[in-house]
Structure formats: structure tokens, C-alpha cells
Design a binder for these strands. Structure first.
Length: 277
DNA sequence: AAGCACACCTGCTAGC
DNA sequence: TGCTAGCAGGTGTGCT
């Protein structure tokens, strides 16, 4: 699913493709993709505006408009943005089509319809739309220090995987990267945060940054059963580096012990029973 | 208060 | 071989 590295890849592609282009029309065909405002209000906020900057916070994509408002996109599980010449056949589940003055099109395709687009006008001190102001630190855009991580852990008493998935603490980590970060930290998904030693916090901090940076470099993960594609329809390559995610029964790359899967925090969690404690 | 289960939705797959 | 029940997951909500 699109997590921080996938959204960052799309952000970079958008920055290269659509900045300074002016919007001619914004067509909303699906019923659910634009739900925080009416379709006409959404279109009206976009038509005539130009995109001046592409930002990201966690899994949110933020496209600044030239009037100060922000076009916000969240891909959730199956959302996909694609950009190209207008007039091409539309893929199934195309819910929003933004056409620029040069007739090129930015399309939002989303089979499961959990993803959303909206235009936000109120921004907070971090220049984030007020409605997503509960998002925690973005470890790539803002950096994450060991001191900050220790403060976020505070007096929490929960599974370390649940902590990593909490967007109000660290923004951008989902199920795939939480498993890969825990593998590299040598911690089990269910390891209690209140039992983390200083050395564990240090490893966790290093792993969060390293795993996400490597995944960004390889343009994210594209798995067989998911649909992540970049703005031009090309998949990522980080799945080839996955140590544990989606590898139940396959050998751990470090010790060859078969990878296990358990349920933690309501999600499937993959880990090496020998390397992770 | 903080942690947890659940709803939302469709495509894919495991199992019959 | 063909069908279907169940799983997959990010976030907001509501319950404990």
C-alpha cells in the first residue's frame, strides 16, 4: 500500500511534471473520492489555479495552489495518481480527472475508494491543512532524532508495531515498512514499548530513517497483490529488499530461519523468530 | 487517557 | 475447473 516512500516517489514525479501548469477543468466522476466538500466546490477551488509546489507529510500529498490553498491527496490502500496526455482511454475506477490548459491530465484512480482528494484553505503553523494537523513527525521531511523518538515513546505501553503505525507519533509508516523497520531493529512486532532499552530505541531510530530512505531511493514497494505505481505507471523496486514482509515461511536473509507471521494491533506482522526478540 | 476493534470497499486467493 | 468466503489494509470513529 502507498506508505511514505511511495507517496514521496509520486511527489517527486509531480514536482517534475505538473508544477506551474494551470488547471482548466476538474471533473469528479466517482461519488466517494471527494467527500470533505461538494464536487462543485472542489472543482471551483481548482479551475484557473496553477500548482506551484509539491509537498508531502506522512502519507499525505500536498499540492500548493497559487492562491494559497492546497490540493490534498491521500491514496489510502489502492489510490493511484497518473499523469499524461489527455484523451487516452480511462482506466476502470478513474474517479477524478484534472485537466491542465495544455490538455495534459492528472487522474485519480482508486478501486477501493478509500483514498480521497480535497482542497484545504486553512493551514497551521507547519503549513499543514488544519484537518490533518494531528499528524506526527515526518521522519524524512523533518528528520527524527533519538531524543525525539524517546520523547514520542514517553510512557506509552503498547506493541512497538502499534507505535510505529500511529500516524500521530511518526507520520508515514504503514504495515510493510513497520515490519521491515522492526526486522532491522531486531525487535519483535509485539515487543512492548515500555520494555524498550536505550539501545533498542537507538536501533529503532536508525532503522526508521535507513529503511525509509532506502525505499525512497528504490521508488517504493510494488507487490503482486497491491497496485502501487508511480505517476507514470511504473512500479518500485524495494520489494526485492524485503526481509520479512510478505515472506511467511521463506528464509530470513540473515539466519535462514523461516519467517513467521502473527497478528499484532489488528494487522498481520512478519518477523524472524530467531533474529528478533 | 490511551489503546483497541470495527467500518469502509473491491480485488485477489485459498480452499472447497 | 469453477465458485465463494474471507482476507488485505489506512484512518476515523466509537467503545472500553
Amino acid at each position: 500500500m502507498p506508505e511514505l516512500p511511495e507517496v514521496e516517489t509520486v511527489r517527486r514525479d509531480l514536482a517534475a511534471a505538473v508544477l506551474s501548469r494551470r488547471i482548466a477543468t476538474a471533473e469528479v466522476t466517482g461519488r466517494r473520492s471527494v467527500r470533505r466538500q461538494s464536487a462543485p466546490a472542489f472543482s471551483e477551488a481548482l479551475v484557473g489555479r496553477a500548482l506551484v509546489r509539491a509537498r508531502r507529510h506522512g502519507k499525505y500529498l500536498l499540492l500548493d495552489l497559487d492562491d494559497g490553498a492546497v490540493l490534498v491527496a491521500h491514496l489510502r490502500m489502492s489510490g493511484q495518481l497518473s499523469y499524461g496526455e489527455g484523451g487516452r482511454a480511462r482506466a476502470a475506477h478513474t474517479h477524478v480527472v484534472i485537466t491542465f490548459e495544455d490538455r495534459s491530465e492528472l487522474r485519480f484512480v482508486d478501486p477501493r475508494t478509500f483514498g480521497e482528494l480535497f482542497v484545504a484553505e486553512e493551514l497551521d503553523a507547519r503549513r499543514l491543512p488544519v484537518c490533518i494537523g494531528t499528524q506526527g513527525i515526518d521522519p524524512i521531511a523533518e528528520g527524527l532524532s533519538e531524543v525525539q523518538l524517546a520523547a514520542l515513546l514517553g510512557r506509552r505501553r503498547t506493541a512497538t508495531k502499534a507505535f510505529l503505525l500511529d500516524q500521530s507519533a511518526i507520520a508515514g509508516i504503514g504495515n510493510i515498512y513497520s515490519d521491515e523497520i522492526l526486522f532491522r531493529s531486531r525487535l519483535r512486532p509485539a515487543h512492548r514499548t515500555d520494555a524498550l532499552r536505550r539501545i533498542d530505541v537507538r536501533r529503532l531510530c536508525t532503522s526508521v530513517t535507513e529503511v525509509l530512505e532506502e525505499a525512497v531511493t528504490l521508488r517504493g514497494s510494488s507487490l503482486r497483490d497491491e497496485r502501487y505505481r508511480d505517476l507514470n505507471g511504473v512500479g518500485g523496486a524495494f520489494q526485492e529488499r524485503h526481509a520479512v514482509y510478505g515472506r511467511v515461511g521463506l528464509p530470513c536473509p540473515t539466519c535462514a530461519t523461516p519467517v513467521s507471521r502473527v497478528r499484532v494491533a489488528g494487522r498481520s506482522a512478519h518477523f524472524c523468530p530467531r533474529c528478533q526478540r
